[in-house]
Amino acid sequence: MTGAAIEANGLGMTYGRKRGWALRDCSFRLPAGRICALVGPNGAGKSTLLSLAAGLLRPAEGSVRVLGSTPAEARPRIAYVSQDKPLYPQLTVADTLWAGAELNPATWDRAAADRIAGPLPQDAKVRALSGGQRTRLALALALGKRPELMLLDELMADLDPLARHQLMGLLMAEAAEHGTTIVMSSHILTELEGSCDYLLFVDGGRVRLGGESDDIVAAHALVTGQARDLAPHTVVESRTTGRQLTALVRREGPLDDTVWDVTEPSLEELLLAHLRSPEAPPLLTPSAHARQEVAAV
């Protein structure tokens, strides 16, 4: 699995001149077969990015390619669940699943859909379902399609912890078996941390961190010690209390642990530090670099 699931070059989107850019200068690559957490604060551009990848929005500038083709061409191989889980309210659960099978005749996997939708009342109308039940039905449709790429926007937001754990488990099982690429957005990192091995951190319409979660964490260090110059390391955030300096740095070469107390930050600490320091330079690991950077200029 060496191809790219998503590749964006200079991607930008605006919903009207007065509202500014929802997304700007986005260039990144998501390798196929990864489970990616798309995180960032509210209004960061996560949903815009997913809609562009799903081909529901047309970029204002730049381009995005999905599974090696345009989003429109790739649509049969993508499943996208938007935040509001659009379903037909007057259909029953059984009707909805039937429609899923009819609309995806080539790939429909009834067993996969049933594993998710099993606990739902099959004769209930969608309008009578709770938020969590609708999420379950939407995910059943998405998995039944047996897609190569799943784009899930705030999928778990209205699920109770037990259902969340169970559905996440089923999603991971699908990915383990079929090598499905999954992108899941959330503004709560801890919800996704254990399940994802790739990270896209979007903030202010830009990708600020992208790559394997382990590598991104390993590229940083939390250092404490006597206040002194941290060069050549890139300081993301630093704080001085009396004579003591605490800083989150991006390593440029080895850190002198005779001078500093060096520990590895958690992913959450890392994201918080970046949120508090909007001027910190972006970091993409080699696998997350878009291949045609020239086109982005």
Binding site: I35, H165, M168, G169, M172, A173, A175, A176, G194, S195
Partner: peptide
């Protein structure tokens, strides 16, 4: 992963 919801690669 079905039981624990962790990443398959892990």
């Amino acid at each position: 992963v079905e039981a624990t919801a962790i990443n398959p690669n892990t």
